[in-house]
């Protein structure tokens, strides 16, 4: 099975300047990976979700997400940005570490949703956050995140 998170969806040296350009980066990659057909429509989906309330968390993390018919397959992207991004967060700190969650409106089965749920709760754990922040090796990082997504927690 093609994992919803894989080496093609992890970006460790992103150098975007603001939230808008981060979201555009995600949409461009989504299009390139055939996760979405239309990057502009997807971008609007992300913006709509951010407007409902910001997806900024704490400790430099954010989880922008889109759950719409424009998403063709459930995908998780991880981006590590070089500079701080201004984002409305729970602790008023800027964002550097981003998990983008892309889910089709009609999800086939709950497996993907369950994995996203596990990822979200892993973000409550300091160990998880530290490892994700500092890992240098893409494959190692991928396996680590996937392991946490597959765990019931």
């Amino acid at each position: 099975m093609n994992n919803m998170l894989n080496e093609q969806t992890i970006f460790l040296d992103v150098d975007e300047v603001d939230k808008d350009s981060i979201l555009k980066f995600i949409c461009k990659k989504a299009k390139a990976l055939a996760v979405a057909d239309d990057e502009d429509v997807l971008y609007q989906d992300f913006l709509d979700r951010e407007e409902e309330f910001s997806t900024g968390l704490q400790d430099g993390f954010a989880i922008p997400h889109a759950r719409t018919k424009n998403v063709k397959k459930a995908t998780v992207m991880f981006l590590r940005n070089k500079r701080d991004i201004d984002w409305v967060t729970m602790d008023d700190q800027p964002v550097k570490y981003i998990f983008a969650l892309l889910v089709p409106e009609e999800s086939a089965g709950n497996l993907h949703l369950k994995m996203i749920s596990s990822l979200a709760t892993a973000l409550l754990e300091d160990d998880f956050k530290e490892t994700v922040k500092s890992s240098k090796d893409k494959t190692e990082l991928m396996n680590y995140i996937l392991k946490n997504m597959e765990e019931e927690n």
Partner: peptide, 18 residues
């Protein structure tokens, strides 16, 4: 939460843990 993806389980687990 609106999308029901991430904040819903996070809040539930955070409260149970606390």
């Amino acid at each position: 939460c609106p999308a029901g993806l991430a904040h819903t389980p996070m809040a539930a687990k955070a409260l149970e843990k606390a």
